[in-house]
Design a protein around this nucleic acid. Structure first.
Lengths: 136, 136
DNA sequence: TATGAAATGCTCGAGGC
DNA sequence: GCCTCGAGCATTTCATA
C-alpha cells in the first residue's frame, strides 16, 4: 500500500509489478481496502505555498465551557485545516493556513467568536521540516 | 482543482463535465499543474485508526541549541508525521501517531536522543474534530 | 489554450485454480 | 485469494482553430 500512497496515478499492472502480483489481484485488493474504509479517498497533494497560503500556525484554544460539540463551529472557518480536542491546559488545538499574518489575526478573531472560547495562544511556524502521510 | 482533490480517481472526461471543459483540455491543465509543482503527487488518503495508529499527539520540543538543521534527525523517527520550527518558547513542534501510549513514550525517549533537545511537552489528542486538505 | 477524433493501453468483470 | 482473458472505456496524442 506504500506504493499506492507514493503514486496513486500509476496503473494496476505497474503496481502489480512493484509488489509481485497480477494486475487483477491488485485491483481486487484495492477494491476491498476502499470498501473497508482503510483507503478513504484518492486525492492530489497540493503545495500550500503555490496556492498562496504560506503562513502556517497552530492555535491552542482555551475554553470556559464544554467544547466537545463545537466541531462544526471550527469547521465553519475555512482557514482551519485540522481541529482536535486535547488533554491539558488548553481544550482545542487547531492548525491554520493563511496568506498573510493579518489573515491569521482575523482567524483568531473568528475563533474568539465561538461559544465557550476563553483565550487563544498562537504558535507561528517559521519553517516546516517535513509533512508526510501515515505509513503502514 | 477542488474537484481533483475530492476524487482524483475519476476520469478526465468526468472532470471536464464538472468544470465545463473537454477531457483533453483538463488533461493539459493538470499536466501543467504537475509540471509547475502545484500538484505534488497523486496519493490515497488512509484511515490512521484502521492502520492501527489511534494515538495522536503533538509534542513541543524545547532546545538549548540551534535546531535549524535537525530536520533529518526528526525524519529518522517514523512515528513523526510532521515537524516544524516554531516561534515562541519551544523550538520545534512535531505531530506523532502511534499504536499505544507506551509507543508514544518511546518516541519521546528517542526525541530526547536528538542533539540539542532540552525538554518536551506532549499534548495528547482525545478526539479529532476533522482534518482536511488545503482548498484553493 | 480549447477542441474532437483516433490509436494505444488500461480497467474490471467472469471463470477457473 | 490469485491468475488469465476479453469487452468496454479512458488516456493521450495530434491536427486544427
Amino acid at each position: 500500500m506504500a506504493e499506492l500512497q507514493r503514486d496513486a496515478a500509476q496503473s494496476y499492472a505497474a503496481l502489480g509489478r512493484a509488489v509481485g502480483l497480477s494486475g487483477g489481484a491488485v485491483h481486487e485488493r484495492v477494491r476491498k481496502l476502499r470498501e473497508r474504509g482503510v483507503i478513504r479517498a484518492t486525492t492530489v497533494e497540493v503545495d500550500p505555498v503555490a496556492l498562496d497560503r504560506p503562513v502556517l500556525a497552530y492555535v491552542m484554544v482555551g475554553a470556559d465551557a464544554w467544547m466537545g460539540e463545537s466541531g462544526d463551529a471550527f469547521a465553519g472557518i475555512p482557514e482551519i485545516m485540522e481541529a482536535h480536542v486535547i488533554a491539558g491546559e488548553a481544550s482545542v488545538l487547531v492548525k491554520v493556513r493563511t496568506a498573510t499574518t493579518e489573515q491569521l489575526q482575523d482567524v483568531l478573531r473568528r475563533i474568539y467568536g465561538i461559544q465557550g472560547v476563553a483565550n487563544t495562544q498562537a504558535i507561528v511556524v517559521l519553517e516546516t521540516f517535513f509533512e508526510r502521510p501515515v505509513r503502514p
